[in-house]
């Protein structure tokens, strides 16, 4: 029974892909779209050769590694700072009163809008990219850690105090683990936001990375390169979010809602 359902699902996926491919072929052979739209053969051949034949200075692997490296630097910095600031706000009323108004003031500004200022501050090199990526993730992580920490069940805190936990133990053993699911939700969103930020940062200013691939494609009118870049971006994005939820399931296996 279950197998049949699965089989049907796969059938639909194959059917959709075939339909898409047919539509694509029709578009490039029978309409005038062929001037601005690459044909499937050139896209896929480029996709496969790009892993051995460089685009610009690097092969596709090189570009992917560049982008991933940038994301990892920004994301790691943001997780650490965001969790600290968020939990501080969530567990101390004074910290909340100090940080919240400034945070709320800066929050509505999309991270991407910081790019020009970041370039002025940090130059056009890596530092400004890290800043943008950091910012994109920081806001989400902070917000979620804050909500997680401030919504810690009072009864659990009471129970821990009754069992003899002091202030510090209540923090490390109750508030921190209790905020974990919320923090992970934040990290999940932050990861997508980082992936998006790195693309924009690379599109605006860089010589490598998957964002560069697509904007370079636009500049040279190479549509196949753009589509190849988009496919890569989609696949990597998918892998990143899947990896994040896998880690979440491992770390928060106790969580009832998972």
């Amino acid at each position: 029974m279950k197998k049949a359902v699965q089989l049907e699902k796969i059938g639909w996926v194959v059917f959709d892909l075939l339909l898409l491919l047919l539509g694509w072929i029709f578009l490039v052979t029978c309409t005038s779209a062929k001037d601005t739209f690459p044909d499937p053969v050139s896209v896929f051949s480029m996709l496969f050769t790009s892993f051995v034949k460089p685009i610009g200075t690097y092969t596709m692997w090189g570009h992917i590694m560049w982008s991933l490296y940038r994301v990892m630097v920004g994301f790691t910095l943001a997780s650490v700072t965001g969790i600290i600031v968020g939990i501080a706000m969530g567990s101390s009323k004074i910290a909340e009163a100090i940080i919240k108004p400034i945070f709320e003031f800066l929050r509505p500004i999309p991270p991407i809008a910081w790019i020009p200022l970041a370039i002025l501050w940090f130059g056009i090199d890596e530092a400004s990219k890290y800043f943008i990526i950091w910012l994109g993730a920081f806001i989400n992580v902070t917000l979620n850690s804050y909500v997680g920490a401030s919504r810690t069940d009072e009864t659990l805190i009471g129970a821990a105090r009754m069992l003899g936990a002091g202030k510090r133990k209540v923090f490390t053993r109750i508030i921190l683990p209790a905020s974990m699911p919320q923090i992970f939700a934040g990290l999940q969103v932050a990861m997508s936001s980082c992936w998006m930020a790195v693309l924009v940062a690379e599109m605006v200013r860089s010589n490598e990375g998957v964002g560069w691939i697509i904007i370079r494609g636009t500049d040279t009118g190479n549509t196949a390169q753009i589509i190849v870049g988009m496919i890569t971006i989609g696949v990597i994005g998918f892998i990143l979010t899947t990896a994040m939820s896998w880690i979440e399931r491992k770390v928060c296996s106790w969580n009832t809602t998972l």
Partner: peptide
């Protein structure tokens, strides 16, 4: 759902900003 889900899942992981270059070209 069966028909649209795969198509939708295909475009979903692509961040919206990645659409900018191709849209500019088109």
């Amino acid at each position: 759902e069966k028909f649209f889900r795969p198509l939708f899942d295909l475009i979903r992981p692509v961040p919206t900003v990645a659409w900018i270059p191709i849209m500019i070209l088109w």
